[in-house]
Each structure stands twice: as C-alpha cells, then as structure tokens.
Design a binder for these strands. Structure first.
Length: 106
DNA sequence: AAGTTGACTTTCG
DNA sequence: TCGAAAGCCAACT
C-alpha cells in the first residue's frame, strides 16, 4: 500500500478537513468549535484553510459564533442551506443558522 | 526568514 | 442594542 501521503497538507489541515467533512447535512459547527476540537484556538486559521482547502468541503456548514454566516460568503452559504434544508433564522441584518437546532455536537 | 493577511472570537464602550 | 479594538493561530507572499 502506498498512499503517497500529502506532505503538502499539514496534519492540522487534514484534521480540519476530516471534521468538516464529518458534519452531516442540516447541521452546523462554529469555527471556534472546530479549532477547539483540534486543541487550538485558531478559529481564523480554520477559516483560512477553508479558503484554500475548503474548496472540496462543505464549508457552509461551518459558521461563526452565534450562527452568523462567514463574512463575504453569506449569500454563497445561504444557497447551500436552502438546498440542504438547513434550519435558518431571519434577522434584521439578514439570515443566520439556527444553532438551536443545527448545532452539531459529536 | 520575516512580516502581513485572513471565510474568527471575545470584551469593552 | 450596536460599534470598535485587541487577541490568537496558521498560511501565504
């Protein structure tokens, strides 16, 4: 067996990808939760990885604290939520994920 | 090699 | 209730 490993991707990146890919449809987690699951507080690092490696991941299932959508990608995520059936809540500023029902707690 | 940036979080005003 | 600033971590230039 020879899996040629991806020395290009760090273990941190692989862990993030594994967690995000493990989030089922209709569920969501916060960047802080994902970072905390790795033992790091780099919530921003998780988002940065999403921008580079999240291209093949359901990044829309990862939201900011409180269920707010990732800035600059709110509309992009909303499109996916409607398609996945994600519970959404309507706010004065726009939409947000209903963490009361969508929070994924492994 | 060093500095800046970024799909964040939390606290103070 | 809303707005702004500082703090943390990893990647990119």
């Amino acid at each position: 067996m020879n899996f040629d490993d991806d020395t290009s991707t760090s273990d941190f990146v692989e862990s993030v990808m594994d967690i995000v890919a493990a989030i089922p449809a209709g569920r969501a987690m916060t960047y802080g939760e994902v970072a905390a699951a790795l033992g790091s507080r780099g919530a921003r690092a998780v988002g940065l990885i999403m921008s580079r490696y999240g291209t093949d991941l359901p990044w829309w299932r990862v939201v900011r604290a409180g269920g707010h959508l990732p800035l600059g990608h709110e509309t992009r995520a909303l499109e996916q939520y409607w398609a996945e059936g994600m519970p959404l809540t309507r706010t004065s500023s726009g939409y947000r994920v209903d963490m009361k029902r969508a929070h994924f707690d492994p």
